[in-house]
C-alpha cells in the first residue's frame, strides 16, 4: 500500500507540468537538465525532467563529439544507490502496468518460457540502446520500441499538434501496435514490459550485487522453504537477484520474517 503511494507520488512529481497537458507544449526549463530515475518520456507534455534512457541514446548519437560522462554517471549513481528499487517504487510505467494487471482476467504465471524471455531485455539494451545509436546515429529504443514514449509523448503531443499529425506514417503505426501489444499482454502477464523488454530495468539489474538499498534475507531465520521465490510474480531465482524489482511482496509470503528491505551495506 505504501509502495503504491510512493509510485503515485512519483508519477505525479515526474509529470507535474500540468499546463503542458492543457496546451500540448513541452516543459523546457532547467530541471530538464537532470534525469528522473524511472522510465518517463521527456516528450510528455507534463514531464519536468528527462528520461535516463532517452538521454543516454541522445548522448550516444552525438558521442562522436562528446562522451556521455554526465548521463552515464547519473545512471550508474542511480544503479549503485537504488538498483531496481527504482523499478518497484519510482517508475510510472511500472505503476501503469501494475494497474493494468489489476483488471480481472486469467493470469499467466511465470514459467520457464518467461524466464528465457527475460534475457531479451539485455539484448535490447545492447542492440537498441547502445549499438544502434552508435552506428546509425538514431535513438533505436525510443524510435522503434519504447511504449512509454508512444503513450506519453506520442499520443498527447500528436493529438494536440496538427503539424505533427502531418508527419505520421508507418513508424507511428508500428509504435502504436507495440503499445497496444504491451497493454494487452500486461493485463494477463504481470509487468510484461519490465520483465522482457525494458533496457532500463536490465541496466539497473546489473547492480543487484552492489546496490546500497535492496531486499535482505536473514540467513539465520531462513528455513529454505522457497515461499518467497514461488510467490514472486517476477522471474526471480532468489530474492534480490537481477530480476527482482525489490517490491517487497515476498515479505508477506515469508512466515519466518526473514526478509526485510533496507541498507544492504
Amino acid at each position: 500500500m505504501r509502495r503504491k503511494l510512493i509510485q503515485v507520488i512519483c508519477a505525479i512529481l515526474y509529470n507535474c507540468n500540468f499546463t503542458g497537458f492543457a496546451k500540448g507544449t513541452i516543459y523546457q526549463g532547467d530541471i530538464k537538465g537532470i534525469c528522473v530515475p524511472g522510465l518517463n518520456c521527456y516528450s510528455c507534455p507534463g514531464a519536468i525532467a528527462s528520461c535516463p534512457l532517452g538521454s543516454l541514446q541522445a548522448a550516444l548519437v552525438s558521442s562522436k563529439y562528446k562522451f556521455p560522462y554526465y548521463i552515464l554517471g547519473m545512471m550508474i549513481l542511480f544503479g549503485v544507490l537504488l538498483g531496481r528499487v527504482i523499478c518497484g517504487y519510482l517508475c510510472p510505467f511500472g505503476l501503469f502496468q501494475e494497474l493494468l494487471y489489476k483488471i480481472p482476467s486469467k493470469k499467466v504465471k511465470k514459467n520457464r518460457w518467461t524466464k528465457r524471455l527475460a534475457y531479451v531485455k539485455y539484448v535490447i539494451l545492447i542492440v537498441f540502446v547502445v549499438l544502434i545509436p552508435l552506428t546509425f546515429a538514431t535513438p533505436g529504443f525510443c524510435k522503434y520500441i519504447c511504449p512509454a514514449g508512444t503513450l506519453e509523448g506520442g499520443v498527447f503531443l500528436v493529438s494536440m499538434d496538427e503539424r505533427l499529425q502531418a508527419l505520421l506514417g508507418g513508424l507511428f503505426s508500428w509504435k502504436m501496435l507495440i503499445l497496444v501489444l504491451v497493454i494487452g499482454t500486461t493485463i494477463f502477464i504481470f509487468r510484461s514490459f519490465c520483465r522482457f523488454v525494458c533496457p532500463l530495468g536490465a541496466f539497473y539489474g546489473l547492480f543487484h550485487k552492489v546496490s546500497v538499498i535492496g531486499m535482505k534475507v536473514d540467513e539465520n531465520r531462513c528455513n529454505g522453504c522457497n515461499a518467497c521465490v514461488s510467490s514472486c510474480k517476477m522471474d526471480v531465482e532468489k530474492v534480490g537477484d537481477a530480476e527482482c524489482i525489490q517490491c517487497g511482496e515476498c515479505k508477506r509470503a515469508c512466515n519466518q520474517c526473514a526478509i526485510s528491505m533496507g541498507r544492504k551495506r
Partner: peptide
C-alpha cells in the same frame, strides 16, 4: 518528498528568472 518538492520549486523559480 520534501527534498524533491524543494528542488522542483527552486528549479522552476530559476527557470522563470532566466
Amino acid at each position: 518528498s520534501l527534498c524533491i518538492s524543494l528542488l522542483t520549486a527552486c528549479g522552476l523559480d530559476s527557470a522563470r528568472k532566466q
